[in-house]
Amino acid sequence: MKKVLVIDDEPIVRLSSKRTLAPEGYDVTLADSGREGIEILERETFDVILLDLKMPDMSGIDVLKVIMEKWPGTKVIIVTGYSTVDTAVESLRLGAYNHIEKPFTPNSLLAAVKEVFDKKD
């Protein structure tokens, strides 16, 4: 089972991701904050993590740093409304795998996630 963790403070984004990915055979776990995401990651391993950059308590960049430190090699796709070159460059520099813009379409999300597994295979 391909496991995907969605870390986003916005319920609608979490729901959209789950509803897009689940029918395609992905096992989707949801976390509503960076802290909760890290707690889940302590227990389980995921193939892909969808990470929002702008969150209230712990920013996506901070979460990314923790993930990259504790579980290097994890595939993190940054999902952000701030589609600026700078944030994209920084997240990639920190070890993010890819980066997609909000609002995403089901196809663009699926394509980004699928790409991870295609490369893996």
């Binding site: 609608i12 897009t20 909000k102 995403f104």
Partner: peptide, 20 residues
């Protein structure tokens, strides 16, 4: 704009899902 992006993601996703 940033706040609108989130609900818009919902609108786009669910419209697509329904469209399918």
């Amino acid at each position: 704009a940033h706040e609108i992006n989130n609900p818009l993601t919902g609108v786009v996703t669910f419209a697509h899902l329904m469209r399918q």
